[in-house]
């Protein structure tokens, strides 16, 4: 896993963005950008340079699942690994996220160990 990779953290709650940022820092990843919903995240992604997307689901404007679908439908962004960190815990939702092509799904509230494990797993699979 490249520790210098650029990560975009998308969540409408600044508290959660900061928590994820802190945990990524503990993992040695300090190149982190933030957005507060899908609508603000998408232009940042389209500008290029982001290597990894961590997004919430339930956000005003554009939700995380919509953002994920946008990413997967854009040929340039499609290969990007996406981790969903969300309080949405219905089986149908998790299935829908998986079908939309999510790489990992962490349900809030989570522990530092869980987040680390999911991120490690994503980059292990990608090789």
């Amino acid at each position: 896993m490249n520790k210098d990779m650029k990560i975009l953290v998308v969540d409408d709650f600044s508290t959660m963005r900061r928590i994820i940022k802190n945990l990524l820092r503990d993992l040695g990843m300090t190149n982190v950008q933030e957005a507060d919903d899908g609508q603000t995240a998408l232009p940042i992604l389209k500008q290029g340079g982001i290597d990894f997307l961590v997004t919430d689901w339930n956000m005003p404007g554009m939700t995380g699942i919509e953002l994920l679908k946008e990413v997967r439908s854009d040929p340039k962004l499609a290969p990007m690994p996406v981790l969903m960190v969300t309080a949405e815990a219905k089986k149908e939702q998790i299935i829908a996220a998986a079908q939309a092509g999510v790489n990992g799904y962490v349900v809030k509230p989570f522990t530092a160990a869980v987040l680390k494990e999911k991120i490690d797993k994503i980059f292990e699979r990608l090789g």
Partner: peptide, 11 residues
């Protein structure tokens, strides 16, 4: 670190 993570109650 756990104290930081537990702030997720706010979300």
């Amino acid at each position: 670190t756990d104290i930081v993570v537990s702030q997720s109650y706010q979300d």
